[in-house]
Design a protein around this nucleic acid. Structure first.
Lengths: 339, 339
DNA sequence: GTGAAAGCGCTAACAG
DNA sequence: CTGTTAGCGCTTTCAC
C-alpha cells in the first residue's frame, strides 16, 4: 500500500468512525445526518486536512460549482464594473467563476466556450449578442443556461440583460440636438463583431438622420477604446478650421480622450466644443469638466445577469428566455452646453 | 438502457470503431495513435458532438487544466492590466483561469483559496504578499505551485514577481525633492492588509525623513482608489492657505483625482502644485497635464508570473522559490515641475 | 440515520 | 499501435 498524499473521503470516514457515504451526505445533504455525527466528521476533516474534490463530484453529472464567463478583455474599465458585479453575485450563490478572454475574436470565443464546457460549467455568461452561429448552436445543443450581458434586444436567442444600446445612442444624439448643435462629429470604435458599439452608432445616426443632419465622412473618427488613440485622432479634427461644435463619443474613455485633445489645443470644453460619452464609467462624473453621458448601470446588469443565470441553472426544466432591459439614462453634466 | 443525454468517450469509441482507451490517448498523447485512426476519432467526435469531461480527467490526480487567480477586485483599472497579461499567458499555455475576488478581505481570501483547491487548480496566483498565516500554510501543506504578483521582496515564502514598491516610493519622493519641493503632502489609501500601498508609503517616508522633511498629520490624506474620493479629500487641503507645493499620490487614479481637485479650484498643475502618481496606468501619459509617475510594467509582471507558475506546475519536484524584481522607472512628465 | 455496493467518465498500466 | 482491465474519489440507490 502506497501512502497517499492527501486525505480523501475514506480517510475522513475512518477518522470519524463512519462510512464514506455518510461523509458525502454530510457535505451534500447535511440535514440527513445527525448533528453529532456531523460534528465528528467536521473534526475529522480538520484533523486530516481534507479538501473536497469537486472534480470527483462533478463527474456524477452533478454540480461542478462553476460558471463560465467569456469576455472580450479584462484590460479595460469598460467591463470591469460589470464583471465585478456578475462575479460577486455568483460567488454569493456559491459558484466560482471560470473566466476567459477572447480579445474581440469571435472564433476564439467559440473555442473558449468549448473549453469551458469541457470543464462542465453549469452556466455561461457572455458579452453582447454578436456570436458565431456555432457558438449559439453549441449552447442550444447542450442546453447550457446562458445569459448575454450588455446589450438588450427583444428577439435574442438566449437570455439577455443589458441596456438598449440603440436607445443609448438615440438619447445622447437627441441631447446634442436639443442643445442646438448641427455640426456634429462622431468618435467610435470599429463596429465589426461589436454589437454594442454598432447599436449605439445606429441609434445616433438614426436620430441625426431624422433631424436631417449629415455627418461628413471625415468627421466620423475611428478609434480604439483608449484615451491615447482617441486623443490622437481627435487632434486632427479639432485643429481644422472647419470643425464641429459637438462630438459624440462611442464611450466615456473615448470621450475623455477627445476632451484632452480639445484642451491640449487650448480649447474650452464645452465652450468651444461639446463632448458627450456613453457609459457613465466610475470617474466620469468627476472629470473636469464632468462628462455628459448615458448611464448604463453596469452593476445592475452584472447582478441581474447573475441572478437570471442562477435561476436558469436551478430550474433547468424551465426553458424560458429571460430578457431584461436595464433602462438607460441621460446624465447631463458639464461637458456639453447650448450652442 | 436509458438514453444518455450527451456523448461520452465510449460513444465516440463505438462510432470510430476503436476502444475508449484509444480515444483517450488520441486526446492526451496524439502521437501514440496512427494518423488515420486519429482521423476516424476526429470524425466520430464531430458526429456525436462529444465534449471532453475535464472533471473525469482531473479525478485521476492529473491535470485539471485550471489555474486559480485570487485578486482583491476586478472593478478597477489597477489590476486589469496585470490580470489580462496573466490570463493571456496562461491561456496560451493551455490553462483556463478560475478567478475569485475577495474585496480586500484576507479572511475571504483564505476561503477562496480553499474553494479553488476544491476545484483542484494546478496553481494559484495571488496579489501581494500580505496573506493570512492559514493561507500560506495551506499552500505549503498542499505544495500548490503559487506565485504572488505585484510586490517584490527578497524574503518571500512563495514565489513572487513584481516591482519593489518601496523603491517606487523612494523614486517618486526623490524626484519631488530633486525639484526643490519641501512642502509635501501625501494622498494614500488605507495601508491595512495592503502591502503594496504600505511599501510605497514606507519608501516615500523614508526618503523624506532622510531629507529631514516632515509631513504634517493633516497633510497625510487618506483616500480610496477612486477619482471621486481622492478629489474630495484633496479639495480641503488645497483650499487652505497653508498648502503644499507638491502632492505624492499612492497611485495614478488618486493622482488624477488630486489634479482635478486642483484644477477645479482654478489652480494650475504643475504651476501651483505638482502632483505625482505611482503606477503609470494606461492613459496616465495622456492626461492633461500628463502625469509624472512610476512605471510598474504590470504587463510584464503578469506575463512573468504566468510563466513562472507554468514552470512551477510542470516541474513539481523543483521546490525552488522564484523571485523576480521587475524594475520600476520614473516617468517624468508634465504634472510636476521645479519649485 | 447509516452502510454496502455499484458505478460516473476517463486514464494508465499492461498485454497483445 | 491498440484493447483490456483496474481503478481515480465521490455519490447514490438500496437495504439495514
Amino acid at each position: 500500500m502506497k501512502t497517499k498524499k492527501y486525505a480523501d473521503i475514506i480517510d475522513v470516514a475512518n477518522h470519524a468512525g463512519v462510512s464514506p457515504a455518510t461523509v458525502s451526505r454530510c457535505f451534500n445533504h447535511p440535514d440527513m445526518v445527525r448533528p453529532d455525527t456531523r460534528k465528528q466528521i467536521q473534526i475529522a476533516v480538520e484533523q486530516t486536512g481534507y479538501i473536497r474534490n469537486r472534480a470527483a463530484q462533478a463527474i456524477h453529472g452533478r454540480r461542478s460549482g462553476t460558471v463560465g464567463l467569456i469576455v472580450p478583455t479584462l484590460d479595460n474599465a469598460i467591463f470591469s464594473n460589470l464583471i465585478q458585479a456578475f462575479t460577486e453575485q455568483l460567488n454569493a450563490n456559491g459558484f466560482t467563476m471560470l473566466v476567459a478572454t477572447h480579445g474581440y475574436d469571435l472564433d476564439r470565443e467559440y473555442k473558449l466556450l468549448r473549453s469551458l464546457l469541457e470543464h462542465r460549467v453549469e452556466g455561461i455568461g457572455l458579452i453582447g449578442l454578436d456570436h458565431k452561429e456555432e457558438t449559439y448552436a453549441l449552447i442550444e445543443r447542450r442546453e447550457t443556461p446562458s445569459v448575454a450581458m450588455w446589450n438588450y434586444r427583444p428577439d435574442t436567442r438566449i437570455s439577455c440583460v443589458g441596456a438598449d444600446n440603440i436607445e443609448a445612442g438615440k438619447l445622447i444624439a437627441q441631447h446634442i440636438l436639443d442643445l442646438g448643435h448641427k455640426r456634429i462629429a462622431l468618435a467610435f470604435p470599429d463596429t465589426h463583431e461589436n454589437d454594442r458599439a454598432a447599436s449605439r452608432l445606429t441609434g445616433v445616426l438614426d436620430v441625426l438622420k431624422k433631424a436631417d443632419i449629415q455627418v461628413p465622412a471625415d468627421w466620423r473618427l475611428n478609434t480604439t477604446y483608449s484615451i491615447r488613440n482617441a486623443r490622437e485622432v481627435s487632434v486632427d479634427l479639432l485643429s481644422s478650421h472647419d470643425r464641429p461644435t459637438a462630438i459624440i463619443a462611442g464611450n466615456d474613455v473615448i470621450a475623455q480622450g477627445v476632451i484632452y485633445a480639445a484642451q491640449s489645443l487650448g480649447m474650452n470644453v464645452p465652450g468651444d466644443v461639446s463632448v458627450a460619452g456613453i457609459g457613465d464609467f466610475s470617474g466620469s462624473a468627476h472629470l473636469l469638466p464632468s462628462l455628459t453621458t448615458i448611464k448604463l448601470r453596469s452593476n445592475k446588469v452584472g447582478r441581474s445577469a447573475a441572478l437570471i443565470l442562477d435561476e436558469l441553472i436551478n430550474d433547468r426544466e424551465n426553458k424560458n428566455i429571460h430578457r431584461l432591459d436595464i433602462k438607460v439614462e441621460l446624465m447631463m453634466r458639464e461637458s456639453t452646453s447650448k450652442l
